[in-house]
Simulated assay, not measured.
Amino acid sequence: LLPDQLVLLLERLLEEKTLTLPTLQTLQRTYHLHEQDAEVRHRWCELIVKHKYTSAYEQVERFLQEDQAMGVYLYGELMVGEDARQQQLARRCFELAKGQMDRSSAEVVAEMLF
């Protein structure tokens, strides 16, 4: 699929209440989502967070390190739930990335995290 088609597919899947682990694994293998452009990887990271796909958290971490401008929303998603592991991931990523982020983004993320 083309990147725009993958974005559309992932956006549709984000509307689903639950996705099983095998479904997420198949998506990842079939479309090599961690190798796609930032728009696709952003939606993929949203799915990872929404469905607590813990074995793919390193992909969220990579996204937050490499695509800081697009990651602000993702920090919010990590903090919304009561999942301590996701919140810890968000804080760790922010500590690593805040020096490279533009000031306004860093301030917004800091407010979400602390």
Score class of each variant (00 low, 15 high):
111 E>N: 13
40 V>Q: 09
31 Y>A: 02
54 T>P: 00
99 G>P: 01
17 K>N: 13
35 E>W: 04
91 R>C: 03
111 E>P: 03
95 E>P: 05
30 T>C: 09
70 M>H: 13
90 A>F: 05
83 D>F: 07
100 Q>G: 10
47 L>Q: 12
66 E>F: 05
34 H>E: 15
34 H>A: 15
68 Q>L: 09
9 L>I: 00
58 E>P: 08
13 L>I: 07
40 V>F: 09
35 E>V: 02
71 G>H: 10
77 E>A: 14
18 T>N: 10
37 D>S: 11
46 E>H: 12
10 L>C: 10
87 Q>Y: 00
29 R>N: 07
29 R>Y: 01
20 T>R: 11
31 Y>H: 15
50 K>M: 05
36 Q>K: 08
92 R>G: 02
93 C>Q: 04
70 M>P: 00
59 Q>P: 00
84 A>E: 15
89 L>Y: 05
45 C>A: 13
52 K>R: 14
80 V>C: 04
37 D>Q: 12
100 Q>R: 04
25 Q>D: 15
57 Y>D: 00
62 R>M: 10
78 L>K: 08
48 I>R: 04
53 Y>F: 15
81 G>Q: 06
31 Y>P: 07
73 Y>K: 08
55 S>D: 13
105 S>D: 15
104 S>T: 03
7 V>K: 10
99 G>C: 01
101 M>S: 10
52 K>F: 10
57 Y>V: 04
19 L>Q: 01
51 H>P: 01
73 Y>H: 11
103 R>H: 08
33 L>Y: 05
31 Y>D: 06
17 K>T: 09
4 D>T: 10
39 E>I: 01
11 E>K: 07
63 F>L: 11
18 T>S: 12
13 L>D: 09
23 T>V: 02
114 F>T: 12
13 L>K: 13
50 K>R: 08
85 R>D: 14
97 A>Y: 01
7 V>E: 15
108 V>A: 14
17 K>Q: 14
26 T>V: 06
19 L>C: 07
15 E>S: 14
20 T>L: 05
19 L>P: 03
105 S>R: 00
31 Y>V: 02
91 R>S: 07
29 R>E: 05
63 F>H: 09
32 H>F: 01
84 A>R: 05
64 L>I: 03
84 A>V: 11
62 R>F: 13
91 R>L: 11
